[in-house]
């Protein structure tokens, strides 16, 4: 665990308003993120359950072993957008932009959202990715995700025969 921790405040400054409760999220590399309790419980079912199991938020530190600091920072940034807007339009747009600019980061954020059970954000992000695939040919999907076609010639024929109805 790093002794020098970086603090990123989400939402309103917690120092200015001491009555606002915060908890600390720890990324896998030890970086600490101070987040507003309402902002995070609004999104994450896992943290909501954790707080109710612990019986409060006093000095609560949540280690997120599968989430690196850059991914957690991006996820919290998107949660902020989501919390500030009543409808999903704005946050959907941000997720789309992230997908086009940094696909790898977007997929990591998706994994992190799944891990902390940010159900509605996760659903929305999966849809963004699925909608992207819908308009693509098999070849385009491979290119977009840099996936190698690892079928043998025989397997490829078989899989195409099995799914031929998709290409009617």
């Amino acid at each position: 665990m790093s002794t020098e921790s970086k603090e990123i405040l989400v939402g309103e400054s917690s120092q200015a308003k001491p009555e606002k409760k915060t908890i600390v999220l720890m990324a896998s590399d030890g970086d600490e993120f101070v987040v507003d309790v309402d902002d995070i419980t609004n999104q994450s079912e896992m943290i909501r359950n954790l707080i109710s199991d612990m019986g409060g938020t006093d000095g609560l530190q949540v280690p997120l072993l599968n989430v690196t600091a850059p991914v957690l920072a991006k996820l919290l940034e998107l949660f902020n957008v989501s919390n500030k807007n009543d409808d999903d339009e704005e946050v959907t747009q941000k997720v789309k932009e992230l997908m086009e600019a940094e696909l790898n980061m977007m997929i990591d954020v998706l994994g992190a959202a799944n891990y902390i059970e940010a159900t509605s954000f996760f659903d929305l992000s999966c849809k963004v990715l699925a909608d992207k695939f819908k308009g693509m040919s098999v070849e385009e999907v491979r290119e977009f995700l840099n996936i190698e076609c690892d079928f043998t010639e025989e397997e490829l024929q078989q899989i195409h025969a099995e799914n031929a109805w998709a290409f009617d």
Binding site: V141, I147, I159, W165
Partner: peptide, 11 residues
């Protein structure tokens, strides 16, 4: 349909 097509991407 898209799901069936997605099955052709890789193993």
């Amino acid at each position: 349909r898209s799901l069936a097509a997605a099955g052709c991407v890789c193993r």
